[in-house]
Design a protein around this nucleic acid. Structure first.
Lengths: 241, 241
DNA sequence: GATTTTTCATTTGTCAGACATTTAATTGTC
DNA sequence: GACAATTAAATGTCTGACAAATGAAAAATC
């Protein structure tokens, strides 16, 4: 029988130790870690092992390294962009690898997105409304590929989320919206279905302008229902193929 | 002036190449990567460099490695647990490192949590309601430390989120709820404020039992307002100290 | 012939030492 | 004082080696 619980390697152990130093605040943003040689001495391992540990942390954007004299590994300031990129990667993989039902993923995504409607109606800016209108223009263009349509759809919804004027909210929602893109890309959008979606997008923008949160919410509910319908028809077509 | 845009290292480049192989589906879950020696030959680098690249991917749970003959690096099946753990780490760091206003973080957290009230009211199970009651018991215990109170609070809200019966939703919300814990830990809960919170928890459970989504939502709104009040008083006390 | 034991090849984990490259501070020169 | 050369410290990479784990095949045993 396979054990499958292999003892953590030295590099993993060291990485965990440094990680908790950072997470628990013993190392602060901008602090410099000891040099690789010093870390190797401290932990009684070779420099190669320390380097593997540091690469693990770098992969999580916990540290950044600089070369040269007075270079080294520094506790990284995690920007919204980096955090979002990581979250999107993780969420996308989770959806892709776990055979999540399209309906379940869709339900979650729209539930989350609807959580920002009242704030968005309250705080929407003209700049963001314009951005949304621009995306609607793109979506209306004839000859647009399905993938480009999806990409613009994501951009539209990201702008909608940004209307809530809360960076933390935008960060969380970016993960759920963008992670859906691969699933959405499986759908073929007919001219008919595109028109339907664009109509809903138009009404969302209009309702936001009027600061009518209830109507925005209703439109999103319709969009969810319609998207699930589209997804199911695709799955049905697959099954009978 | 510092350049700050250092060219990506070889190990980072190789990691990116393999990562896109996985993300774009050229490597599937369970597939075995070539051995480190083979990868080194393929990319024309040393084994040490390949290993650093693989450790980066392992840190993101994209691959897992097994020792021994017929061992190697395998494309990992990303479980909900692993994904959630990563998301919580990222979110916690983001909140901790970016001097997010307590109010902004709180607003985002409750907006997201309220997105699951209608599903939760519809699908709540007796088992989860019992779990929530159990946490209320814990929270009512005299002599409980603030940290233990917070931990139980997180457990309560996780159960609430799980009531929605949507794994994807639970995954996303876990990040926003758990990442708040360090911020919540800064708050000192008086007996008075604990009683207030526990009352709201009780009414949430009662409303869920009655499948009364509107009342749950109202209680969460109150909880949000009260939490923000508590947070602000802490900040004020800090400022005048 | 079936079962157990041993051997063996493969692969990751770790180490030691070396050299290349980058970078900021120092020193030297005019 | 300004500019150029030197130097020291640090990461990035390579090489070669050995240890440890592990499954498969071969050998020994019954």
């Amino acid at each position: 029988m396979k054990n499958h619980v292999s003892p953590p390697s030295l590099s993993a152990t060291i990485a965990d130790a440094i990680r908790s130093d950072i997470v628990d605040g013993r190392l602060l943003v901008g602090d410099r870690l000891p040099s690789e040689t010093e870390l190797a001495d401290q932990h009684g391992v070779s420099r190669a092992t320390v380097r593997e540990a540091l690469k693990r942390l770098a992969a999580q954007s916990l540290i950044r390294t600089e070369r040269g004299a007075f270079g080294g590994a520094f506790v990284n300031h995690l920007s919204y962009e980096e955090a979002r990129a990581q979250q999107v990667t993780t969420s996308t993989l989770l959806l892709g690898m776990n055979a999540i039902g399209f309906q379940v993923a869709c339900e979650a995504r729209y539930a989350l997105e609807r959580s920002c409607t009242s704030l968005a109606a309250e705080r929407r800016t003209d700049a963001l409304l314009d951005a949304m209108r621009k995306e609607i223009e793109i979506q209306s263009a004839p000859g647009l590929t399905d993938e480009a349509f999806c990409a613009s759809d994501v951009a539209f919804h990201r702008a909608l989320v940004d209307c809530a004027g809360n960076e933390v909210l935008s960060y969380h929602l970016a993960g759920s919206v963008e992670a859906m893109q691969p699933l959405m890309n499986m759908i073929t959008f007919t001219a008919r279905s595109r028109a339907e979606i664009i109509d809903l997008h138009r009404s969302i923008v209009a309702d936001l302008e009027k600061r009518d949160a209830v109507s925005v919410d209703r439109a999103l509910a319709k969009l969810e229902a319609y998207t699930i319908t589209l997804g199911q028809s695709v799955l049905k077509a697959r099954a009978t193929r």
